[in-house]
Every structure is written in structure tokens, then in C-alpha cells.
């Protein structure tokens, strides 16, 4: 069985899909979004050891060239994350399917299912597939939260193992998407079409970022596409919030309620029936 590099596991989450869900955040992302609110999940630790001295409890130390983390003494002050120059975390750990399942055994009677998020969990697709297969055997649902950069099509085993995907469409135009994330969005849009066509698209999400993105253009085009595919797919418009964000990279602010309502009206006029603003 494969192992996955995991940033953290939240036993209970109310914001990662329907019902209560155990949320598993995988380490590593191929995007580098200017507004990323958990940049410590982007890269894998390269064991520079810069964080070690910042830990007030001495939980970090170097063992055979690797930075090791003593979870039991950790007080979650996050000094290590703040000191990291590589957008990584010394607290990400390699876990086997059994180890993750042991955690889920503890939460299974409290949850509707799991949501695998990140980072970008689809970069560890084999692990995600195996984990979802095990979780489905417990009669729980499996949701994937993805930036859409890895194709979902062409992998029946994966598709059978997952119930639903929550997909980010961060910008509609390729250039804007590259500016924001560093990557093109052709695969993202193809995933949007594909997942909708097989009824595995739970929601599409767009973060609204004043001054940085053409928010109206993205919401207009994405909502038209959703309405054409299946108007009942939820379109979630998320206010940019500077919490956890590398604010030196981005010059924006929390969008006004007026802007959010304007975008809501656009999506509605385009035919979307399930629009949520958060």
C-alpha cells in the first residue's frame, strides 16, 4: 500500500462538503496562488532546518539529515511555519493508508464522510484512490477538493472510488490564471466539463479578489458554463480574506457585499440555481 504526505487531519469539519467530514489535507501543490491562505502546504520540506531554533518547546530536531517533529509536545504555535522560507511545514508526515484509517475509525460514527484536500491532493492520486476505496467500504462518502490541474478522466479506478469533487476555477482566462497561479487552466476547464458530465461535480468555487482579477468576467463565464452543464451544481463565490496570506505578494482587500451581490446576480441571470456566497 502507498503512503501519503499529509499536512494535517481535521477530525471534524463543517466547511468541507455536506455534513460533518474528516478533512485530510495533503502536502504539496503545483499551483502557487498569490492569495493562497495556507502556503505552508505548497512545497515538501527540504530539511534546511531553519525552523528548528524557532520552536519554543524543542519539538523539532534533525535526525539523519531530516527534520523530525515531536507531535506530543507541540503546542501549535506555528512559529515553524512562519519561519519557513520554502512554503512548507516540518509537521507534514508520511502516513500509510492504515494510519489514516485508524484516525477515521475514531471519527466514523460522527461523520458523513471524508474530504481530501490540500495542497493539491490529486498530485498523490494513487494514495487518494486507495484511501477512498477503504473509506467507501465503511459506507462513508468520499469528496475531493481539487485545483483541477490533474486530469480526472481516464482513471476509472479513481472515479469509482470518489463520490464528488469540489473544484476551484480560479480564473476563466488562461493569462489571468497563469498570473494568479503560475499555471494554465485548460485542464481545469476540461475537468469541469468532465466531472459535470458524470455527475461527480459537487461544487465549483471562485475566490473573488478585487483589483487583482477580472472577477466579473470569471463569474460570468464560469456560471454560463455551469448552467449549460447542470444548473443545479453549486457555484460558491468566496470572498478573498487576507488571513494566512502572503500579503507581500498581493495587493487586494475583502470584497464588498455589493460586489458579491452583483456577482450573485450575474450567475443567477446566467441560469445557475444554487449560488452560495461566503
Amino acid at each position: 500500500m502507498s503512503k501519503g504526505l499529509i499536512n494535517k487531519i481535521l477530525p471534524f469539519s463543517s466547511v468541507d462538503g455536506p455534513g460533518n467530514r474528516t478533512a485530510i489535507f495533503m502536502q504539496g501543490c503545483n499551483f502557487n496562488c498569490l492569495y493562497c491562505h495556507n502556503p505552508e502546504t505548497i512545497n515538501n520540506c527540504h530539511n534546511c532546518g531553519l525552523c528548528i531554533a524557532t520552536c519554543p518547546k524543542g519539538c523539532l530536531l534533525k535526525q539523519e539529515g531530516f527534520v523530525a517533529w515531536n507531535k506530543d509536545q507541540c503546542i501549535d504555535c506555528d512559529n515553524c511555519l512562519k519561519s519557513c522560507k520554502s512554503c512548507s511545514s516540518p509537521k507534514a508526515i508520511w502516513m500509510s493508508i492504515e494510519e489514516v484509517m485508524y484516525k477515521i475509525e475514531n471519527t466514523k460514527c460522527f461523520i458523513s464522510g471524508i474530504t481530501i484536500s490540500g495542497g493539491e491532493c490529486m498530485l498523490q492520486k494513487e494514495f487518494v484512490t486507495e484511501l477512498c476505496e477503504e473509506v467507501k467500504a465503511l459506507n462513508l462518502t468520499t469528496f475531493i477538493d481539487s485545483n483541477g490541474s490533474v486530469p480526472f478522466w481516464g482513471d476509472d479506478r479513481l472515479i469509482n472510488a470518489i463520490d464528488m469533487v469540489m473544484l476551484d476555477v480560479k480564473a476563466y482566462d488562461s493569462e489571468a490564471h497563469k498570473m494568479l497561479t503560475g499555471k494554465d487552466n485548460q485542464i481545469v476547464l476540461k475537468n469541469l466539463d468532465y466531472l459535470a458530465s458524470i455527475n461527480k461535480l459537487y461544487e465549483v468555487r471562485t475566490v473573488i479578489v478585487p483589483e487583482v482579477l477580472d472577477n466579473i468576467r470569471t463569474v460570468d463565464m464560469v456560471s454560463k458554463r455551469i448552467a449549460k452543464l447542470n444548473a443545479n451544481i453549486r457555484y460558491k463565490l468566496i470572498k478573498y480574506r487576507p488571513i494566512g496570506v502572503r500579503t507581500q505578494l498581493i495587493n487586494s482587500y475583502v470584497p464588498t457585499n455589493e460586489l458579491m451581490e452583483e456577482l450573485y446576480d450575474i450567475a443567477k441571470a446566467n441560469g445557475c440555481k444554487n449560488i452560495v456566497i461566503i
Binding site: 471534524f12 463543517s14 455534513g19 460514527c109 460522527f110
Partner: peptide
């Protein structure tokens, strides 16, 4: 109060609590 957007979350917690 944002939990009002996901009442099933509370129902899941309730069911689990009763079960344990």
C-alpha cells in the same frame, strides 16, 4: 453562526454523540 449553512454537520455530530 456559519454552521447554519450546514445543518447536517450538527446532525452528524448529534448522531455520533448519541452512539458513543
Amino acid at each position: 453562526s456559519t454552521v447554519k449553512n450546514n445543518m447536517n454537520y450538527v446532525l452528524d455530530v448529534l448522531k455520533g454523540a448519541m452512539k458513543v
